[in-house]
Design a protein around this nucleic acid. Structure first.
Ligand code: FES
Ligand code: FES
Lengths: 141, 141
DNA sequence: TCTTTTTCCTATCGGTATAGTAGGATTATA
DNA sequence: TATAATCCTACTATACCGATAGGAAAAAGA
């Protein structure tokens, strides 16, 4: 339940690798080799991250990927949203009324509450929290 | 991301239907019809809930399903665990060392933190919270 | 201009899980 | 024995996912 796709796990490892490097930059093949990820598959992941503005990509010789912001500015909620989309436990988080006989659907609030809890967690962690030593910023224990 | 299976959504709706009925009991076909769920598919769901001890099932004539406990004793964490398994963002929540070069893996703590946040939310809500009017017990806002 | 290095794009494939269906076996009541 | 219900096993169809393949576009340097 609630398992995270390999795509997102790979993406986070790739970002963490970049964040640990001086200049926060590297070439795709290097990341793939260091993190033991299928190079071709990682390409698509990095492209997604670039499209979301989390990394800058430069083509051609001397090209590669570079973190768009400092690690403590890369919010994990944005990372997972870029790779696997927004947190959406059920389809009716925005559009009400799909599942049901209740006009003010009761379980809908339950799922929205879960979404909020997850978004809050992911919104309060950054890449910096991950590469340091743990993932526990003072907030929210 | 983090979408909930139809199985779990159906299961919760079925439990909510039972909780709203006097005696907390109904027959499978009745639930399926009222909640507009495929009857055959719902059978398997109710069997799982019965195996997890969340509902009692009685076979034969005058049989059916009944809530095993009062709605405020049915913890949502148990419900989703019965239907879709434990919350496990990554495989290495227990077994360390699958993904990585780090001995004290950094991203692992991140995922465990997420699991904890989700478990906390689900562990603090019961079926009663769902059938009332919202899903916001005083705790944890 | 030509070659090299890199990111980008599109299409495809095999595996796996999910939602749903089908048919019957079991159990209990009357 | 007939009926009404849960239980069990197997099957199908679809969709997504991880991965692969082959190249197209772009930037730099010789
Ligand atoms: S309208 Fe979506 S859960 Fe009810
Ligand atoms: S050991 Fe699993 S995330 Fe590193």
């Amino acid at each position: 339940m609630f398992s995270v796709s390999a795509r997102t796990q790979y993406g986070i490892r790739a970002l963490a690798y970049l964040a640990r490097k001086p200049g926060w930059e590297a070439v795709g093949a290097e990341i793939a080799e260091a993190e033991d990820i299928s190079p071709k598959y990682l390409e698509g992941i990095l492209t997604r991250l670039a499209a979301a503005g989390l990394v800058r990509s430069e083509r051609g010789k001397n090209g590669g990927y570079r973190l768009a912001r400092a690690p403590d500015g890369v919010v994990m909620a944005d990372v997972v949203a870029a790779l696997d989309g927004e947190v959406r436990p059920v389809d009716c988080v925005d559009s009400l009324g799909i599942c049901g006989h209740d006009t003010s659907c009761s379980s809908r609030k339950f799922w929205i509450g879960l979404k909020t809890a997850i978004d809050e967690y992911l919104g309060n962690r950054t890449l910096a929290d991950i590469i340091e030593n743990g993932a526990d910023p003072g907030s929210a224990n």
